[in-house]
Simulated assay, not measured.
Amino acid sequence: MFNLIGYRTLKTAVGAALAIFIAEQLQLDFYVSAGITAILCISVTRKDSLKSSWQRIVACVIGLALASVMFEFIGYHAIVLCALLLLFIPIVVYFNAKKGIVTSTVFMLHLYTLEQVTLGILFNEILLLLIGVGAALLMNTYMPSNEKQMRNTQREIEQCFQKVWYEYARFLRGNITDWSGEELITASKKIDDGLANALKTSDNHIFRHDDYFYHYFKMREKQLEILNRMLPLISTLDHTVVQSQKIAEFMAELSKAVHPGNTAIFYLKQLHELKEALREMELPHSRKEFEVRSELFHLLYEIEIYLTIKKKFKPDPKRN
């Protein structure tokens, strides 16, 4: 049933009911407003919920203060309410508390309905606000972990990268062109999904930073840019030259080594040895050979950037 309804829907229902129940037990006027406040304060992340709650508290304090002065000194008339809102909204926006406009307007309308301002009435409104905010924050202490989803996304991205390296090597070995390049598009979508989930997870950790997955997906995003840059370069290379075959072998090894662990140092060393071996080969005899050799070294340069990005990445502390 929990999965069918959804955790946020369930939290909203329980939070609203809890706020109304407490306000009603305290015999507060307009006790339903506590439930409305709770509904508005329940958000998708803890950080957003805290920010939303704080904005509503600030806005309500400003709104009640303005309403008390204007209604008591000018009168309880519709034109005064209009002037109040015209003054109140810009002030709240200036104090970066615009999420509290709706909630504050409800509390100001309470004063307009009662046509009086007393300490008891103001205390009633503040209690309604605090009960609603408190119920929302209590509900938002539970946030489901999406680590499993992010690890699945991580594996899917790595499978795409493995396929890309495999196809690059296959082309250099035999000029095989039956690959659609779908994995490059899929990897881009998966990285975007991963970053969105990683940011949500980060916003659910108020007092500590858990940003491994965010940095991981950003690292893969940078590497994907390089893989995309390499595609037109590889497609123009001559697969018959011996240097292409050596680079193809190296790419095939990279295809098998795409995983969260950091093996970049090992492959950077291999890459350096490969570059030295290519430099020691016989010089090109024609302009075409020279151009191919130049493009191959450009390709090696891109691979070096790809590996350097991974080298700088900190491994998962939970798997060390």
Rank of each mutant, 00 (worst) to 15 (best):
T113V: 07
F71L: 15
F73S: 15
T118S: 12
V80E: 05
E72D: 11
F73V: 11
T118R: 04
G75F: 06
L138C: 12
G100K: 03
A78V: 15
A78T: 13
N124M: 07
L87S: 09
L129I: 14
I89R: 01
K99N: 11
Y112A: 13
L122M: 12
A97M: 03
H110Y: 11
I126Q: 01
I131S: 02
V106M: 06
L127C: 14
S104Y: 04
I74M: 15
L64T: 13
E115A: 13
A67T: 11
I131P: 02
A67S: 15
Y112I: 08
T113W: 04
F95C: 02
G120K: 03
L86K: 04
Q116D: 10
L130Y: 09
L122D: 06
A135T: 04
K98N: 04
L81S: 15
L111P: 08
G134P: 05
V69F: 14
Y112Q: 11
G100F: 05
M70L: 15
L122V: 10
Y112E: 10
F71P: 06
A65E: 12
V106P: 02
L81T: 14
L129G: 07
V117I: 14
L84V: 06
A83K: 02
A67Y: 11
L129Y: 10
G132Q: 03
Y94Q: 11
S104H: 08
I91K: 01
V92T: 00
L85D: 08
S104N: 09
V92H: 03
L138E: 06
A135G: 07
C82G: 12
K99M: 07
T103W: 01
L109R: 04
I101G: 00
A65G: 14
K98L: 02
V117R: 09
T118N: 06
S104I: 13
A135F: 05
S68V: 12
L114F: 10
L128N: 09
F123L: 12
I101D: 02
C82S: 14
F107L: 14
Y112M: 14
Y76G: 09
A97I: 05
L128E: 07
G63E: 11
V92M: 00
L87T: 10
I131Q: 03
M139H: 03
K98S: 10
G120E: 09
L127V: 09
T103Q: 02
L64C: 15
E72W: 13
L81A: 14
L87D: 03
L114N: 08
I121D: 00
A136L: 10
E72I: 14
I126D: 00
